[in-house]
């Protein structure tokens, strides 16, 4: 049984390596066919990657620094979104009246795309907090709304069981509501993180700072250096993928009682 699962794992891994290989092959082929200075080969992109990693960009900022800065901004905004979004979502889910009475404010704000705030934010905020605020805006609503809806979706029977034994409200919230909403809260955090990742790129590409992946891409876009731009894009993809995998790993670990973990 164990062996079979392992074999499946290696097989999946093999297919993924094959997919990657095929992709690189097609890319190289396209490079040979197109022969344009605006279409770099995988090798050229890899060289640009090494260059950025070891020597840094035109302003001598190394790729590692760019990644670190972007992640640090994401972390700030995302943490703020979780710290505010989850408790508020729980509160409003448990006390429907609060949500119903504040809907007039919450719902319209929810539908303003975070990017629409950027001009305002540029005027009002500088430096780190500019980014944190935009990321917070992007990640907050999926987390808040996801938590709120998950509280409303708790199976009433699971609440009636402890209630019929005389459980207090506190007991029910702690032992039924929280464990029941946790998977969905984590999923909404995952969604929020994805949006945060989009927001940071939009915010960084506005310019104004020297370090950050979005800023790096912008610098090279002005020089029309396709290879370095593609490095930036790939790095964004890989980090997003990595963060998502971390979440899935944690979900699998915590929710062993669930049969399947969503993708």
């Amino acid at each position: 049984m164990e062996e079979k699962i392992n074999r499946e794992k290696y097989k999946t891994l093999g297919y993924n390596v094959l997919t990657l290989f095929l992709f690189l092959a097609i890319w190289t082929l396209a490079y040979w066919l197109i022969k344009s200075p605006f279409f770099p080969s995988p090798l050229m992109v890899f060289n640009a990657f090494l260059e950025l990693l070891i020597h840094g960009d035109i302003e001598d900022v190394k790729l590692g620094m760019h990644i670190q800065q972007s992640l640090w901004r994401i972390f700030g905004g995302f943490a703020a979104a979780c710290i505010l979004g989850i408790p508020l979502g729980l509160l409003m889910g448990l006390y429907g009246r609060v949500y119903d009475s504040t809907k007039v404010l919450i719902e319209p704000i929810r539908f303003i795309p975070p990017v629409a705030w950027i001009p305002l934010v540029i005027v009002l905020l500088v430096g780190y907090f500019r980014f944190v605020f935009i990321i917070w805006l992007g990640a907050f609503f999926p987390i808040f709304i996801g938590t709120l809806l998950s509280v409303r979706g708790v199976n009433p029977l699971h609440i009636e069981v402890p209630k019929s034994f005389g459980a207090s409200r506190f007991y029910i919230i702690r032992n039924i509501v929280l464990p029941s909403v946790l998977p969905e809260v984590l999923t909404s955090m995952r969604v929020g993180l994805g949006i945060a990742w989009e927001c940071i790129m939009a915010a960084e590409m506005i310019g104004g700072e020297r370090v950050g992946i979005g800023i790096m891409i912008l610098k090279y876009a002005q020089l029309i250096r396709m290879d370095a731009i593609i490095v930036g894009i790939i790095v964004i993809g890989i980090i997003g993928f990595g963060l998502n995998e971390i979440f899935i790993f944690v979900e699998k670990r915590i929710f062993r009682w669930k049969e399947v973990v969503s993708i």
Binding site: L157, H158, E160, V161, S164, F165, G166, I176, P179, S180, F255, W257, K258
Partner: peptide
């Protein structure tokens, strides 16, 4: 106050 128990008609096991 009272010691009451209920076996519900629908499946009521708590999944976690």
């Amino acid at each position: 106050k009272h010691n009451v128990s209920f076996v519900f008609q629908e499946p009521s096991c708590i999944p976690w």
